[in-house]
Amino acid sequence: MIPSDDALDTVQDYLAGSGTGALTLGRRLKSVAKLFNYCLIDAPPQRSQISLTVIGASDGLMIPVEASVKGLQSLIRTLELINELKEEDETFGGRVLGVVPFRDRWVGLRRTTESESNIESMKQITTQWFEKDLVLPSIRESEKFKQAINRGLTLHEMGQEDLAYPIEVLVDKIYSLDGKHDKS
């Protein structure tokens, strides 16, 4: 885990002015590829040079999408950006592994109407773009995540298997990139 800091703003300016920003990170990662099985990069949810660079360097993309109207608009913009990269660079190999709805709101044992509607729209959007539904199990809005982190426990140790399931699906999708790793 390598956290970013304020220097990311400087990198943003460099990448935007270099003319090859979308390819730079991919070249840099190739030089250390044998040191790591996976490199996970959390790019900012905006159309920026940093996001372009991260998407351009990716073998697989997970797109987190808030279960809201704003999230749906963001999903469409992200898919348009990915499509532009594919059209501009025939060597672009990033494939969308899944769309991950988050902040999925539930009341008791039922998903709210708003979350239900937005997640259904995500399914329709991904089916239109990819001819299949790429929406993965949603990550529910819950304080249990913070509690698990603060206590140093897993969700399973806290008896929250239902909250852990979407994370397990994400891990399986990441492992599917190369098919060589056993998730145990």
Rank of each mutant, 00 (worst) to 15 (best):
P3Y: 01
Q12M: 11
G19C: 04
T20V: 14
L23M: 12
T24E: 13
G26P: 06
G26K: 15
R27M: 12
V32A: 14
K34A: 14
F36S: 13
C39W: 01
L40G: 10
I41A: 15
P44D: 09
P45W: 08
Q46N: 12
Q46E: 12
S48F: 07
S51W: 07
T53N: 15
I55C: 11
D59Y: 07
D59K: 06
R77W: 04
L85N: 02
K86W: 04
D89C: 04
E90G: 12
F92K: 02
G94K: 14
R95D: 11
R95W: 05
G98M: 08
G98N: 08
G98Y: 02
P101F: 06
N118P: 00
E120V: 02
S121A: 13
Q124P: 02
I125G: 09
T126S: 11
T127P: 04
W129Q: 14
E131D: 14
D133K: 07
D133H: 06
V135P: 01
L136R: 06
L136M: 15
L136W: 07
I139P: 11
R140W: 06
E141R: 12
Q147P: 02
G152I: 00
L153K: 10
L153E: 08
T154H: 03
M158I: 00
Q160R: 08
Q160D: 08
D162V: 07
D162Y: 08
A164M: 10
I167A: 13
E168H: 06
V169I: 15
L170A: 08
L170H: 07
V171H: 08
V171K: 13
V171Q: 08
K173T: 10
I174Q: 06
Y175F: 14
L177C: 12
H181K: 07
H181N: 09
K183R: 14
